[in-house]
């Protein structure tokens, strides 16, 4: 249970980084926020499934 914040941070960093790179390559500015929120959702789902058993 103590590692939930680190899961959320990791999800945000992974998908936020992917979104940031996409933004850099495609000259857009939308993928970074989308990636950050998507990563948070995925990490939250993972933490929920993993720890609620």
């Amino acid at each position: 249970m103590w590692s939930i914040p680190s899961y959320l941070l990791a999800g945000m960093i992974v998908y936020g980084a992917i979104g940031w790179l996409l933004d850099r390559w495609l000259d857009t500015s939308a993928f970074f926020p989308i990636g950050t929120v998507l990563g948070l959702m995925l990490a939250g789902y993972l933490a929920y499934r993993k720890f609620s058993r």
Binding site: M1, I4, P5, L8, L9, M12, G16, D23, S29, F32, P33, T36, V37, L40, M41, G44, A47, Y48, F51, S52
Partner: peptide, 27 residues
């Protein structure tokens, strides 16, 4: 189970606050 779900959702808000400066400086 429900406590963890609530905790994850609330903690996500705090972490969104952590990146909000980067988000808004980007838009």
């Amino acid at each position: 189970q429900n406590m963890l779900l609530g905790f994850v959702l609330t903690e996500a808000l705090a972490l969104i606050g952590l990146v909000a400066p980067f988000l808004f400086s980007n838009l």
